[in-house]
Amino acid sequence: MDTYKLILNGKTLKGETTTEAVDAATAEKVFKHAANEHGVHGHWTYDPETKTFTVTE
């Protein structure tokens, strides 16, 4: 398992979190669910070198 990071750049919610996942696709599902639960919808990017997802509203 690897550690993946999410950076939230929402209009009303900003922050960072991490998750352990077997691959980037699994981490993305976890992060998108969490972002949706917090009402953050926007443009997603992924940097494979740093294993970091970013969502920007």
Rank of each mutant, 00 (worst) to 15 (best):
T19D: 02
K29M: 11
H33A: 15
E28I: 07
E16D: 05
V40G: 02
V30C: 07
K14S: 10
G42W: 09
T54G: 02
A35K: 01
E28R: 07
H38Q: 14
H38M: 15
P48L: 06
N36P: 02
T3P: 04
L6R: 00
K11S: 10
K14N: 09
E37M: 14
D47N: 10
I7A: 03
T18D: 04
A35F: 07
K11H: 13
K29C: 11
V55N: 01
V40S: 03
D2S: 13
K51D: 00
T12R: 09
A21V: 04
A21Q: 06
T26M: 12
E28M: 12
K5E: 03
K32Q: 10
W44F: 04
E20N: 10
V40T: 03
A35P: 01
T3I: 14
E37G: 07
K51R: 12
H43Y: 13
K51C: 04
G39I: 08
A27F: 01
T19Y: 11
V30E: 08
F31A: 01
K51I: 02
H38D: 05
T26Q: 11
L13K: 11
T18V: 09
W44C: 01
P48Q: 08
T45Q: 09
E57V: 07
T18G: 04
T54I: 07
T45C: 08
H41L: 11
N9Y: 11
A24G: 04
F31V: 01
T18Q: 09
T12Q: 11
M1V: 10
A25Y: 09
H43T: 15
G39M: 07
D23S: 06
A24L: 09
D47A: 06
A27C: 00
E16N: 06
T26I: 06
T18E: 08
V55I: 08
E37P: 02
A27P: 00
V40N: 03
K5S: 05
D2C: 14
T19H: 06
K51N: 05
G39E: 05
M1G: 08
K51P: 01
D23K: 02
F53L: 01
A25E: 12
A21G: 02
Y46D: 00
A34V: 15
T18L: 08
H43N: 12
T17N: 06
V55E: 00
V22E: 12
N9E: 09
V40A: 04
G10R: 03
E20I: 14
K11M: 12
A24W: 12
D23Y: 02
T50Q: 06
D47V: 06
G39Q: 06
W44S: 00
E28Y: 15
V55W: 03
G15V: 15
T3Q: 08
H38C: 15
L13D: 05
E28S: 05
T17L: 15
L13V: 14
L6W: 04
Y46R: 00
V30R: 09
P48M: 07
T26N: 08
T54R: 05
E57M: 06
D47S: 07
E49A: 12
T19M: 12
N36Q: 13
